[in-house]
Design a protein around this nucleic acid. Structure first.
Lengths: 236, 236
DNA sequence: CGTTGAATTGAAAGTGATCAAGGCGTGTGG
DNA sequence: CCACACGCCTTGATCACTTTCAATTCAACG
C-alpha cells in the first residue's frame, strides 16, 4: 500500500528502516472522507497532525465580513500541523475538495516521531518547503496582477500534480472550482472567470471541466513572472 | 550575554542544559552589520541558518518588473533558514533595517543540532509559528482592504515588539519607513501614507518619526478585523 | 545652508469589485 | 423520459479603491 506522505519525507531526508516503519505505523489508521466536508470541526483536539494520503483539500480562513481566503491547497502527501495557535475556533478550517483518505497523528505520537533524528529532519525540511510556498503566495498576492497571479497558481498546482504522477504531457486534472480558485487568489469568482478566458486567449492554458491543459508552458511562465524556483527543488 | 534566539527556543520546548549550551555555542560567532545592508549576497553558501540576535531586518523578493515584496519582518530572536530552494540568486534577499547583530549557523551544525530532540522540537515549533504568521499575511493580502491590512500589520509588529520588551504602554519604536511598509503590505508608499493618516484620524494609531503609538488598541483591532489569534500563543 | 532621503498632497488613469442576469450541464424525482 | 433544480460558469454595466505621475514640503545631517 503506497503512502505518499512517507514517500515525500524520504525525499527530504535519509530515513532508517526503523524510522520508515514508525511513519507507516503512525499513518496506518486512515479514514475516508467525502468531498466537500470540513476536516476540522469544532472541539477537535488541537496539536494533532493531519496527513493527506489521498485526495485534495484546502486550508482556509473566514473573515468577520464573511469573505474567505484559501491559504493552501493540500494534495496527497501534504501535511497540516494543527499546532495550537489556530483552528480551535470555527473560523479556520480544512475542507476536502475531492473524496479523500486522511490520517491523523496524535500530538504524543508526533512528539515521539520527532525524537528520531531522520524524521525530525524530514519534518523540518517539509515545513521549510511549505514555508517557501507560502512566501511565494505572499509575493503573488502583494505584487502580481490578477493575470500573473492566476498563471502563477496554475503553474504551481500543475507542477505539484506532475510530481505526484497525476497527469502527463501538459494535462492534469484540477478539481478546483472557480470559486475556490478565487478564494485562493484573493479575487472574485467573476474576475477569475475573465482572467481564465484571457489566459486561454493568450494560448497559455485552458481550464475546463476540471481539466487543466498547459498549452504553452513558456507563455505561462512568462506571464506568471518566473517564480517557480521554489518548486524546482521541491521533491528533492 | 543575552541571546534572544535561545530565549525564544526555550519558550517553544523544554531544553536540557546541554542543548542550551549547544545553541549558545552555535550562535557564539556573531557579526555586526550596519543598517541597510544586504545580508545575503550572491554566492553565499546556501543551507545556512541566519539568526537575528539584535536589530531589525526584512526578507524580500524583487520581481522581474522591479517591484519588491517584503515577505517577513525579522526581529531579534527570529531566524531565516536559507534552505536550498531559494536565495541562491540575487532576486531574493535579506536586508537590515537597523544596525544588527547576526549569527550564521553552518548547515552541518544545523544538522547536528537537529539530532538533539529538544532542539529539533523547538526549531520545529518555531517554524510552525512563522508559518502561522505567513498564513495570516496571505489572508491579509487576499481579503483585507488596505486600511485593515495596515492596521493588522501594525498590530502584529506592535505585539511582537512588546514581547521583546521593547517599548511599553502602547508605544514602541518602529524603524520601518513608509516604503518598506508599503512593500510589506503590497501597496504603494503613497497609499500607505494616506492610510496612516486615516488611521490617525480614526484615533487608532500614530506612526511618526519611527515611533508607533497605539492610541486605541480596541479601535485598531476592530479595524484590523480580529486576527491576532495567531500571536496570542506566540511566545508560549 | 544646501543636499538628500522621506513624507505629503493633488489629479488622472486603471484594475478589479460589485450587482444583476442569463446559460449550461447534470442528477433526481415525478 | 422529461422537467425542474441546483451548482457552476459566463456576460455586461457600473462603481470604488489603488496606482500612477508629478510636485511640494519636511527633517536630518554634513
Amino acid at each position: 500500500m503506497p503512502n505518499r506522505y512517507v514517500d515525500k519525507l524520504r525525499r527530504h531526508a535519509a530515513l532508517t528502516e526503523h524510522e520508515v516503519g514508525a511513519l507507516h505505523d503512525a499513518t496506518a489508521c486512515r479514514r475516508a472522507i467525502k468531498a466537500r466536508r470540513d476536516l476540522v470541526r469544532e472541539g477537535d483536539e488541537s496539536g494533532r497532525m493531519l496527513v493527506m494520503l489521498d485526495g485534495w483539500a484546502f486550508r482556509y480562513k473566514v473573515l468577520p465580513r464573511g469573505t474567505r481566503q484559501v491559504m493552501a491547497i493540500l494534495m496527497p502527501g501534504d501535511v497540516c500541523d494543527l499546532n495550537g495557535s489556530d483552528l480551535a475556533e470555527m473560523d479556520h478550517g480544512i475542507q476536502t475538495i475531492t473524496d479523500a483518505q486522511v490520517a491523523t497523528i496524535a500530538p504524543s505520537t508526533v512528539s515521539e516521531l520527532m525524537t528520531q533524528p531522520g524524521i525530525a529532519r524530514a519534518l523540518y525540511v517539509a515545513l521549510l518547503d511549505d514555508q517557501a510556498m507560502l512566501r511565494a503566495w505572499v509575493v503573488s498576492m502583494g505584487r502580481r496582477t490578477s493575470i500573473e497571479r492566476a498563471a502563477s497558481l496554475l503553474l504551481e498546482l500543475y507542477l505539484r500534480a506532475l510530481r505526484l504522477g497525476v497527469g502527463v504531457d501538459g494535462v492534469v486534472e484540477l478539481p478546483l472550482s472557480q470559486v475556490v480558485l478565487a478564494d485562493a487568489l484573493g479575487m472574485t469568482a467573476v474576475h477569475v472567470n475573465r482572467v481564465l478566458q484571457e489566459l486561454r486567449r493568450a494560448d497559455a492554458v485552458e481550464l475546463e471541466r476540471r481539466v487543466l491543459r498547459i498549452s504553452n508552458p513558456g507563455a505561462l511562465t512568462e506571464i506568471a513572472g518566473f517564480d517557480d524556483n521554489y518548486l524546482v527543488r521541491r521533491g528533492h
